[in-house]
């Protein structure tokens, strides 16, 4: 069962894992109000859709009333085939490298935590590192070093520390919430000075 987006977001908050400002919208006016004149993203959320961007369910860079209205109309018409669905509006993330951070419960070993080069490339490149929870700082650093794309995914110094803290917090969250079977934070947009978690999926 897929958790409600804001229930999942609330849990992340409690572990100090920040995700991008978001809101459900029920009309185009809702979305326009949320945008405050700045560019936003709109997505259709449905338990039946994992590959949102491939299915055209993510509308990026909506920066005026007209584009918001058009996107809203397209998403609602697509949504008819994947009921029940909701439409979420989010502030645009800054640009950076897309990573995936996630976790799942393994029947043999318990909770696992993962980081990889993310976004649309994740299943093609399969460049990821996996560990059993709970992880220590050394494990988190090993995970970053294991990535073929380590120099792309992480910047030096501070960025490695930030990512390592994020991984440790995710591992803690997974371990302390045993009902969670699968977790995707994908994409996580990594910048030199921070990150934006753009999408969250928690499965129970």
């Amino acid at each position: 069962m897929l958790w409600d987006y804001f229930k999942a977001k609330g849990l992340l908050d409690r572990y100090g894992i920040k995700s991008i400002e978001s809101r459900y919208v029920e009309s185009k006016d809702d979305a326009v109000y949320f945008s405050e004149g700045k560019p936003i993203v709109m997505k259709l959320i449905s338990e039946r859709q994992l590959h949102k961007s491939k299915a055209g369910l993510v509308k990026l860079g909506l920066d005026d009333e007209k584009s918001i209205a058009k996107a809203y109309q397209e998403l609602t018409s697509k949504g008819r085939n994947t009921r029940p669905y909701k439409i979420i509006a989010q502030k645009m993330a800054g640009s950076g490298v897309e990573a995936i951070i996630g976790g799942r419960e393994d029947p043999q070993f318990g909770k696992l935590v993962l980081i990889g080069l993310g976004g649309i490339y994740v299943e093609a490149f399969k460049d990821f590192a996996l560990r059993v929870c709970p992880i220590k700082e050394q494990d988190a650093m090993d995970m970053l070093d294991q990535l073929v794309s380590r120099d792309v995914v992480t910047y030096k110094g501070e960025s490695r520390k930030m990512l390592s803290r994020l991984l440790i917090n995710v591992s803690k969250l997974l371990n302390e919430n045993q009902e969670i079977k699968e977790l995707d934070l994908n994409p996580v947009i990594l910048r030199k000075d921070g990150y934006d978690i753009v999408d969250i999926r928690v499965l129970q």
Partner: peptide
């Protein structure tokens, strides 16, 4: 149902 589970199967867990 998630990218994580699709990437990290039983062999990967071992």
């Amino acid at each position: 149902h998630s990218h994580t589970a699709a990437l990290a199967g039983s062999y990967e867990a071992h």
